[in-house]
């Protein structure tokens, strides 16, 4: 036990003694966080254990506490055990995670699910609905009411535009296929696609017609 505490203290000192953003500090923090996670010495926050969804809140707070711990490593005073300081931060993060949990919108509905299958079933329920959505989406890209998708093209090749790529993708075609059809290599197509779909006017366009 004492040995572990000392090991943690040494790592914390090592992190402090190296400049921020140096490899040495980052490696020390990396090892230190792993030690903390595996130590079983994080406070159990027992006074809160009756809360519904306690486990979820607990895990969220652990994440928050460790990130804060790494950011504030320079504030740690080595005369105290590392775990005392971590748990001090953890307590505040836990309170914060509780209140954030309560403020969350109710849209997120899979709080109690654990197994992957149940989670996805919940997420995907109402497939009939989603078929309708697919048709709506296809109509949208095919008609491209304001011509925004057509106007985004790969350099001077007006034929290889966002609309055409989307139609191919909707048909379930592979990128390799689209590459052959359009004569552009996959990385060119894919970079173009990734950049285009993040454009503000494209996102707003989707919102306007699809939401």
């Amino acid at each position: 036990m004492c040995e572990l505490a000392e090991q943690m203290r040494q790592l914390a000192l090592k992190a402090q003694n190296n400049p921020s953003n140096s490899v040495a500090r980052r490696k020390a923090l990396n090892s230190l966080v792993k030690l903390i996670q595996g130590s079983g010495l994080l406070s159990r926050q027992q006074s809160w254990s009756q809360l519904p969804n306690f486990e979820e809140i607990y895990q969220e707070a652990v994440n928050d506490a460790l990130v804060k711990f790494c950011k504030d490593i320079d504030k740690y005073s080595p005369q105290y055990p590392v775990m005392a300081w971590v748990n001090h931060i953890f307590r505040w993060c836990f309170l914060d995670a509780v209140s954030r949990y309560r403020e969350r919108t109710q849209i997120c509905s899979f709080d109690e699910e654990a197994a992957e299958e149940r989670l996805f079933k919940d997420l995907l329920e109402g497939e009939g609905q989603s078929k309708e959505d697919i048709n709506l989406f296809r109509d949208f890209i095919e008609s491209d009411p304001e011509g925004i998708l057509r106007d985004l093209h790969i350099r001077r090749d007006r034929n290889t535009n966002l609309q055409r790529i989307l139609i191919f993708l909707c048909e379930g075609r592979e990128w390799r296929d689209i590459s052959i059809k359009s004569g552009h290599p996959i990385p060119t197509l894919s970079s173009f696609y990734q950049r285009s779909i993040k454009k503000r006017n494209v996102v707003e366009y989707c919102r306007k017609y699809l939401q």
Partner: peptide
């Protein structure tokens, strides 16, 4: 955690409709 600064996509550039294809 390791003090690298990441660039977050703003909400205005989230496109769930088209992201699903790639």
């Amino acid at each position: 955690c390791m003090s690298f600064e990441t660039v977050k996509d703003r909400d205005s550039s989230q496109n769930p409709w088209m992201q699903t294809f790639i």
